[in-house]
Design a protein around this nucleic acid. Structure first.
Ligand SMILES: [Mn+2]
Ligand SMILES: [Mn+2]
Ligand SMILES: [Zn+2]
Ligand SMILES: [Zn+2]
Lengths: 140, 140
DNA sequence: GTCTTGTTGCAACTCAGTCGCAAAAGTGGT
DNA sequence: ACCACTTTTGCGACTGAGTTGCAACAAGAC
């Protein structure tokens, strides 16, 4: 019996038929080591620290490839640039602090369930969804 | 007693201190007459039918101005371009048919309520939110 | 009508993201 | 280790939605 059912990004790439190149190794490692939701520029900065010389176009292309294969999630919060995270163990949605840009993750099984019910009522199957809640720290 | 409490966009613009120019009249009228969620290019096309000669930069600028004053809502669905609608009587969220791009509006008081509860639990006040559900027509 | 200030048209610009291409490198077979 | 085949990379040029500087114009206030 397996010690873990959790595949690494690299393993999942191989499984998807993607070639494991040096730039990709660095990018995947960076993604796995990121707890936040970096944009391509920030990702490129982080990647460059462990593997200098990788072109930012490669990061853009890799993000597209990984997203097409469902290995990462692309977000578009209101700052206008795409931001990414490795596909999480469990689905979650996001609070975005409008004052700082900071992102906090949450999950509501109740909301998820109601969405399903609603979609069914309208005759739809859900492909995906996003719930972004822009917030401020509560005063008082 | 008033026949209606519903202000027109033009009235709300005046109230906000915005000047009612010919281009704006045409744009506001077009917005009020649109049941869907047009992008700037489409909006400009519609405006041009009733008032030719308005520059698309004016439409872009007007969308920004109206959004800053809370008179319209800006959406960014996954097609990458901003889309707009006059601020609706009541808040609603959106299903987006991934096969056709068609948008269907819905409202769930339950989801709205849970969001409030959740935000409070995390110590936040909600500024705004968006729930976009990408769907396919159900088969079977 | 005059004055002040906000708005417009236009062209130039910005900037995140994409693309064509030739060189480089991964993978599978031998 | 080598080859053949295919994918990926670096690089610079490009795209396209959206923005901006500026001079001309026009709302609204008096
Ligand atoms: Mn997340
Ligand atoms: Mn709507
Ligand atoms: Zn969710
Ligand atoms: Zn809502």
């Amino acid at each position: 019996m397996n010690k873990s059912v959790k595949l690494t990004l690299t393993e999942r790439c191989r499984h998807a038929g993607l070639r494991i190149t040096a730039p990709r190794k660095a990018i995947l490692k960076t993604l796995e080591g990121s707890e936040d939701h970096p944009n391509v520029e920030e990702l490129h900065r982080r990647v460059s620290r462990i593997a200098p010389g990788i072109n930012i176009a490669t990061v853009y292309r890799t993000m597209n490839t990984l997203a097409e294969h469902g290995l990462i999630e692309r977000h578009s919060f209101s700052d206008g640039r795409a931001r990414y995270e490795a596909v999480p163990e469990d689905h979650h949605d996001h609070f975005i602090n409008v004052e700082t840009g900071e992102v906090v993750e949450f999950r509501s099984d109740e909301i998820e369930r109601i969405q399903e019910e609603l979609a069914r009522k309208y005759g739809f199957d859900i492909v995906s969804h996003r719930l972004d809640i822009y917030v401020k720290p509560r005063k008082g």
